[in-house]
C-alpha cells in the first residue's frame, strides 16, 4: 500500500514537472536557426559567446581606425545567414524567426544593428552561395574550429 502511494506520488511529481517543462517550452520558443552553408569565421561556441564583442571591436576598426580590411564584417554575416522566401526574395535577418531575430528573442536582448545596417544582401545573386564563397575565403583555419561541421546555425 505504502509502495503504491509512493509510486503515485512519483507519478504526480513527474506529471507536474512535465507540465512546468511544457509550459516553459511553450512560453519562450526555442530559436529555429537555419544552417548556413560552409563554415563560419569562428566556431559556433565562440560565435555564440563573442559575436557581439567581435562586432564591437571590428566596427571601431572599420569606422574609426580606417582599417576596412578586416575578415569580420556584418555584411558577410548577413550574406551567409540570410534566408529566402519560396519565391526567392530575401527575408531580413532581423525579421521574426530569422537567424538574428530568433536567438535574440529567445535571450530577450534587443537587436538594434539593423536599425541602421542593411538586413539583406545588396546583390540579388548574393545570399547562400555567394555568402559561403565569401566565408570560404575568410574562414578560420580548421585547426581552430572546435568541432568539425558545427558551422553557424547548429541549434542552441
Amino acid at each position: 500500500m505504502r509502495i503504491r502511494a509512493g509510486l503515485w506520488a512519483v507519478l504526480a511529481v513527474a506529471v507536474a514537472l512535465s507540465g512546468v517543462w511544457a509550459a516553459h517550452r511553450g512560453r519562450v520558443a526555442l530559436p529555429v536557426v537555419a544552417r548556413a552553408p560552409g563554415h563560419c569565421v569562428l566556431n559556433t561556441a565562440q560565435m555564440r559567446r563573442t559575436h557581439m564583442m567581435l562586432l564591437r571591436t571590428v566596427r571601431e576598426d572599420i569606422v574609426r581606425r580606417d582599417a576596412r580590411d578586416t575578415r569580420f564584417r556584418l555584411t558577410h554575416c548577413v550574406a551567409c545567414h540570410v534566408q529566402r522566401t519560396a519565391s526567392g526574395r530575401f527575408i531580413p535577418v532581423n525579421a521574426p524567426g530569422q537567424f538574428c531575430a530568433s536567438c535574440h528573442a529567445y535571450v530577450g536582448v534587443r537587436l538594434d544593428c539593423f536599425d541602421c545596417h542593411a538586413a539583406v544582401p545588396h546583390h540579388a545573386g548574393a545570399g547562400q552561395a555567394a555568402g559561403s564563397a565569401l566565408v570560404a575565403a575568410f574562414r578560420m583555419p580548421r585547426a581552430l574550429r572546435a568541432s568539425k561541421g558545427a558551422g553557424p546555425g547548429g541549434g542552441p
Binding site: 563573442t50 571591436t57 576598426d61 581606425r65 580606417d66 582599417a67 575578415r71
Partner: peptide, 10 residues
C-alpha cells in the same frame, strides 16, 4: 579579445 590581432587595413 586579442585586440591587437585584428588585421589592420589602410
Amino acid at each position: 579579445l586579442a585586440r591587437d590581432l585584428v588585421v589592420k587595413g589602410s
